[in-house]
Write a protein that binds this DNA or RNA. Structure first.
Length: 727
DNA sequence: TACTATTTAATTTTT
DNA sequence: TTAAATAGTA
C-alpha cells in the first residue's frame, strides 16, 4: 500500500526528528517538542500520514486540543495537506469532545436530554446562591474558594463521596458544599466545565459496552499540549486507549504553566510508565528565534530541576543581543518601550509584529496610557469575551429559560431584569419555598404567586411567568436568529439597555444585535438530536468567542505571558521583569511555584523571533504605593554575553505626566499653573458631566485635554476655561 | 430601586 | 490606585 501513495507532500520540509515522529510505527509515541520546533506541524503531518499512507480511516482518529482555535487550525491544516475534507475525523477540545459524548449518551450519563452547560461565571453565581439558601456566611466560606475547591476535586476525578474530611471541620464543610452544589446542578440539569470531563470519564468507566465501542472506533489518539492535561483528562485518554489504542502525544514539559488550573506535567512521566514501550522523540531544532534568544532561554530554563531536559538550537545566526533596560519607574519603562516601538514602526515594520508581554494584567495600564498618548494603535488580549458580556448572558438566560424552565441560574439572573417589581423580598420567598419543597424556582414561583404573595408581587410574578411562556410559544417554529431577535425585544432587554445613558448602553444594545447575527451565522448540526437553540446555547458556553471585534487592524499586541503561549513576534518586550512581580510574590517562596514562573519566563523569551527587550523598573507604583524593586532573578540567569544594557536615560519625566495628585485640583482650575492632570484622571464638567482624560497637550494657558465624557462623548477642552473638577 | 459611600483586596485563564 | 462588592441613603 505504502508505495502507491506519493508521500512527498507529507514528508518534505520535515527535519529528521520531525520525520521520525510523523512516520513512527503504530506504537505509543511521546513527542517532546520545544518552543518553535514545529509541534503543530508534526501533529498535522502525523494525522495525514496515518490517513494517507497507513490507510487509516479518518473515523478511527481522535485528535484532542485545549482550545477551540487550536482545534479549528488543526482541522484546517490536515484538510489542506490531504486536500480533502475530513468530516468524520473527531477533532476538538477535551470539553468539546466530552460534550459530544454526553449529548449522544445522555441517558447512560444520567443527564436530562437538554442539560445546559454553565461557565465559571454561572458557576460562581450558583455557589453564591447556594450559600444564601443554606444561610451560610459567605465571608467565612468564600464563594471563590469553594469554586476552586470543587473544580480542583473534579479535575482530580473526585466526587464528594470519595472525599474524606480527615477530621478537619473546614474540609468537612467544603465537602458538604460540594455535595450540595452537585445536587443543585443535577436537579437543574446543569453541567459545569469540569463536570463535562468527569461525566465523560464515568460514562466510559461504567459502561463497558460503550467503552468497547469507542475503543474499537478510535484506535489512534492524537493529543496536543500534553503537558497541560489534568488528571481527569489523562484518565479519560488512558481509559480510551486501553491496551490496544495508540496514543501519539505532543508536549513540552518546559512550557507547562497551568498547574494552578489542574494541569500536571507529571503526565509526561506517567505516560512513559503506562506505556513502557513508548517511543520518545525530541524536537529541539527551532525555526523561530535567533541563536542568542534560544541560548538565553536554554540558560534560564536550565535552572529548573524538574524537567526532562532538552536544548533548543537553530541553524540560523546569532542575531542581535538581548537588550536590557533599567527604567527609573514604570512610566519611564513605558516611555522607553514606546520609543522603541516608534522606531520599529518608523522603519516600516508592522505594528502587529510587535508585542509587549507582562506578568499580570494590571501592568497594561501604564503602557496603554503611553500608547494612547503616542497615538499608536494597540490591542490588549484577554478581558471579556463576547459570550461573557453581561447583556449577552442576560439574553442567553432568557433563551435558556425558554428551553429549560428548571434552570434556576437563568431564572434568578433575569427574573427582575428589566425591573418588573420582583424585588429581593419576593425572590427570597420563592427561594425558601423552593428549598422547603426541593423544587426549582420556576415551580416555586408558580406556587408562591398563587397563594403566598400579596397582590402586587403576585401579579408581577404571574406576569413574568406569562412572559416566558408567551415567548416560548411565539418563538416555536421560528428560525434561530428570529428566536433570538424576538427574545431580546420581547423580554424588554433592548429597551432596558437603551435607557442606559451614554455609550455603555449603546454598546450593550449593539452587542445584543450582534448576538442576533451570531445566531444567524450559526450552523446547527443537521444530525443533532438537539434543537438548534439548545445547540446554540451549548456553543455559546463552550466557545466564548473573540475578545475584541476589531482585531485585525495593524496594532501593537499587549498581553500576559500566559496568553502569549503559542504565539510568536519578530519584536518582543518583556516588561516588568522585577522580583516580586515576575517571579510573582505569591510564587516566590514555593520552589515549585518558582519553577513554574521560570517556565513562564521561558515561554516569554521564546516568543521573540528577532529582537528581545527585557525591561524593569527600579521603582514601581503598586496598589498605590511606591516600591523599590530588584531586577528579576531571571535576568541574572541569562548569560552576560547575550545581554546588552541599554541606557538612553535622557529626560525621564515629562511635565504633564507629573502626578501631583494633591495639588492637582487647584492647579487644574487655576489658569496658568502647571497642570497636574493625568491620563485616566476622572473629571467633572459643569455641562458635560463626568469623564476621563484621554490625552493632553500644550502648556500653561494653552494646555488642552481630551476628555471622554460618559454622556457627551469625547471632547477637547482648554484647561483654563473648562473649569474641570478633578475627582 | 437607584445612586453613593465605604470597605476590601490585589497572578496567571480556557473550557 | 482602583475596581468591585457591599452597605447605606434618598
Amino acid at each position: 500500500m505504502q508505495h502507491l501513495v506519493d508521500v512527498t507532500p507529507i514528508l518534505e520540509n520535515l527535519n529528521d526528528a520531525q520525520r521520525e515522529a510523523v512516520t513512527a510505527p503504530a506504537e505509543p509515541t511521546l513527542v517532546i517538542a520545544g518552543a518553535g520546533s514545529g509541534k503543530t506541524r508534526v501533529l498535522v503531518h502525523r494525522a495525514a500520514w496515518l490517513i494517507d499512507v497507513e490507510g487509516l480511516s479518518p473515523q478511527s482518529l481522535l485528535a484532542v486540543t485545549f482550545t477551540n482555535k487550536a482545534a479549528a487550525e488543526m482541522r484546517g491544516r490536515i484538510e489542506s495537506l490531504l486536500d480533502m475534507p475530513v468530516a468524520h475525523l473527531w477533532i476538538g477540545t477535551f470539553h468539546g469532545l466530552a460534550h459530544r459524548l454526553l449529548r449522544r449518551h445522555w441517558r447512560e450519563a444520567n443527564l436530562p436530554q437538554n442539560f445546559q452547560i454553565i461557565d465559571s461565571d454561572d458557576q460562581l453565581r450558583l455557589i453564591k446562591r447556594l450559600l444564601k439558601n443554606l444561610e451560610i456566611d459567605d465571608s467565612r466560606w468564600v464563594p471563590r474558594e469553594i469554586q476552586y475547591f470543587i473544580n480542583g476535586q473534579k479535575d482530580e476525578g473526585l466526587r464528594p463521596q470519595h472525599l474524606d474530611d480527615d477530621g478537619d471541620p473546614n474540609r468537612r464543610q467544603m465537602i458538604a458544599l460540594y455535595q450540595a452544589y452537585e445536587e443543585v446542578c443535577q436537579r437543574g440539569g446543569l453541567v459545569d466545565f469540569a463536570e463535562l470531563l468527569l461525566r465523560a470519564h464515568e460514562l466510559w468507566r461504567d459502561n463497558a459496552e460503550l467503552l468497547e465501542h469507542y475503543r474499537r472506533r478510535f484506535t489512534h489518539l492524537l493529543v496536543d499540549e500534553f503537558q497541560d492535561t489534568n488528571s481527569i483528562q489523562y484518565a479519560w485518554l488512558r481509559l480510551l486507549a486501553g491496551d490496544t489504542g495508540i496514543p501519539f502525544v505532543v508536549g513540552d514539559d518546559d512550557q507547562s504553566i497551568y498547574r494552578w488550573r489542574g494541569a500536571r506535567v507529571e503526565h509526561i512521566y506517567r505516560f512513559q510508565k503506562d506505556f513502557p514501550s513508548a517511543r520518545v522523540v525530541k524536537l529541539e531544532q527551532n525555526y523561530r528565534s535567533t541563536a542568542t534568544i534560544l541560548n538565553a532561554a536554554n540558560a534560564v530554563i536550565a535552572n529548573n530541576n524538574a524537567r526532562m531536559g532538552k536544548n533548543l538550537w537553530t541553524e540560523g545566526s546569532d542575531g542581535e543581543s538581548i537588550k536590557v533596560y533599567a527604567a527609573y519607574n514604570e512610566r519611564d519603562e513605558a516611555d522607553f518601550i514606546i520609543a522603541r516601538l516608534r522606531d520599529w514602526i518608523d522603519q516600516g515594520n508592522l505594528r502587529a509584529d510587535s508585542a509587549v508581554l507582562y506578568r499580570s494584567n494590571a501592568q497594561s495600564r501604564v503602557l496603554e496610557e503611553g500608547l494612547i498618548n503616542a497615538g499608536i494603535p494597540y490591542r490588549v488580549y484577554g478581558g471579556l469575551r463576547f459570550f461573557e458580556r453581561a447583556e449577552i448572558k442576560d439574553a442567553l438566560a432568557y433563551l435558556r429559560l425558554i428551553s429549560h424552565r428548571d434552570d434556576d441560574s437563568s431564572f434568578e439572573r433575569i427574573v427582575n431584569k428589566p425591573t418588573r417589581g420582583i424585588g429581593a423580598r419576593t425572590i427570597d420567598i420563592m427561594r425558601s419555598y423552593a428549598r422547603a419543597n426541593s423544587c426549582t424556582l420556576w415551580r416555586a414561583a408558580g406556587a408562591v404567586a398563587s397563594d403566598e404573595l400579596a397582590g402586587r408581587a403576585a401579579n408581577a410574578v404571574h406576569a413574568f411567568m406569562q412572559l416566558i411562556e408567551r415567548m416560548a410559544q411565539d418563538v416555536a417554529g421560528l428560525d434561530l436568529q428570529e428566536q433570538v431577535d424576538h427574545v431580546i425585544h420581547a423580554s424588554g432587554l433592548i429597551d432596558f439597555f437603551k435607557k442606559d445613558k451614554g455609550e455603555k448602553g449603546e454598546t450593550r444594545v449593539e452587542n445584543l444585535l450582534e448576538l442576533v447575527s451570531a445566531a444567524r451565522s450559526f450552523e446547527p448540526d443537521p444530525a443533532s438530536e438537539m434543537s438548534p437553540l439548545d445547540e446554540f446555547l451549548s456553543h455559546a458556553a463552550l466557545e466564548a468567542g473573540e475578545g475584541q471585534a476589531d482585531a485585525w487592524e495593524d496594532c501593537v499586541q499587549l498581553m500576559t505571558m500566559h496568553s502569549a503561549k503559542g504565539l510568536e513576534f519578530p519584536l518582543v518586550f518583556l516588561a516588568g521583569m522585577e522580583d516580586g512581580l515576575f517571579p510573582h510574590q505569591r510564587s516566590i517562596a514555593d520552589p515549585n511555584g518558582l519553577e513554574e514562573e521560570r517556565r513562564l519566563c521561558y515561554v516569554g523569551i521564546t516568543r521573540a523571533m528577532q529582537t528581545l527587550y527585557v525591561t524593569y523598573a527600579e521603582q514601581r507604583r503598586l496598589h498605590g504605593m511606591d516600591n523599590f524593586s530588584q531586577p528579576s532573578r531571571f535576568i541574572a540567569e541569562i548569560p552576560d554575553e547575550h545581554i546588552e544594557e541599554v541606557r538612553p536615560r535622557v529626560q525621564v519625566s515629562r511635565p504633564m505626566h507629573t502626578p501631583r495628585r494633591s495639588s492637582a485640583g487647584r492647579a487644574a482650575s487655576a489658569p496658568g499653573n502647571e497642570l497636574g492632570v493625568r491620563l485616566g484622571q476622572r473629571v467633572r464638567h459643569g455641562k458635560f458631566g463626568d469623564g476621563v482624560i484621554l490625552n493632553c497637550e500644550g502648556q500653561g494657558a494653552h494646555a488642552r485635554v481630551e476628555v471622554n465624557f460618559e454622556t457627551a462623548g469625547t471632547k477637547w477642552l482648554v484647561l483654563s476655561y473648562a473649569n474641570l473638577d478633578l475627582m
